[in-house]
Amino acid sequence: METLTALILIFIGAALINNFVLHYFVGICPFLGVSRRVDTAFGMGCAVTFVISISTLLNWTFTHFILRPGAPLPAWVWQSLGGSAQTQIDLSVLSYIIYIFVIASSVQFVEMYVRRFFPPLYKSFGVFLPLITTNCAILFASLEVLKHMQDSTELWGLPQALALALGGGIGFTLAIALMAGIREELDLCDVPRALRGAGIALIVAGIMAMAFMGFTGVEKGVETALGSLLR
C-alpha cells in the first residue's frame, strides 16, 4: 500500500504541484508556440505524454543497467578485468548525451511506426512528433528520474519513473490546453497594442504559474487522504 501511495503522490506531484511547465518552466516553446487553438494544443499534449512515457521507459532502462553508480554492466566489466568489488564505476556523466540520443531516435522510430500502422493518428500527430524531439520537458523527466537513481538509499524503480513521466505529460497537456483556451478568448479582447501576441501570452503564463502555486502543500492532505482510503 505504501508503494501505491508513493506512486500516486509522484503522479500528482508531477502533474499539479510541480507542474513541468508552470513550476519548473520546461517545455515553454511548445507551451507558447502551439497554444493558439485548443484542439491542436490538446494534440500536442497527447503527443508529448506519449513520447515522454516511451523515452522515460527507455532511459530508465539505460540508467538502471548502465549509467547509475553501481550499475550491473560497468560493475561486471570492471570485475572481469580484475578490479575490486568495492570500487564503483559511475557513468552518469553520460546521461545528457545518451538521453538526448535515445529521445531523438525513439521519436524517429515512433514516427515511422505510427505512420505505417496508424495513418489517422499520424495525420493528427504528424506535425508535432518531430517537434517533440527537442522538447526539454522530455529530457527533464529523464533527468528527474536520474536524480532519484544516483544515491542508492531511495532507488526509483520503473513504476516510479513511469508515474513521473505520465504525470508530467498529463500536467503538460493540462497546462497547454488551459493556455490555449485562455488565448482563444484573448483573441476577442481589447489588448493594448504593445502587449499583443507574445507579451500577453507571457503575462498569462505567469499568472497561471502563480495560480498553480496554490497546489503547494496539497501533497500532505493527499497523503493523509490516501492513507485512510487505502488502509
Binding site: P74, W78, L81, I89, L91, V93, L94, I97
Partner: peptide, 10 residues
Amino acid sequence: VALALAAAVL
C-alpha cells in the same frame, strides 16, 4: 576503464 566504457557504450 570508465573512459573506455563510456566510449564503448556510446
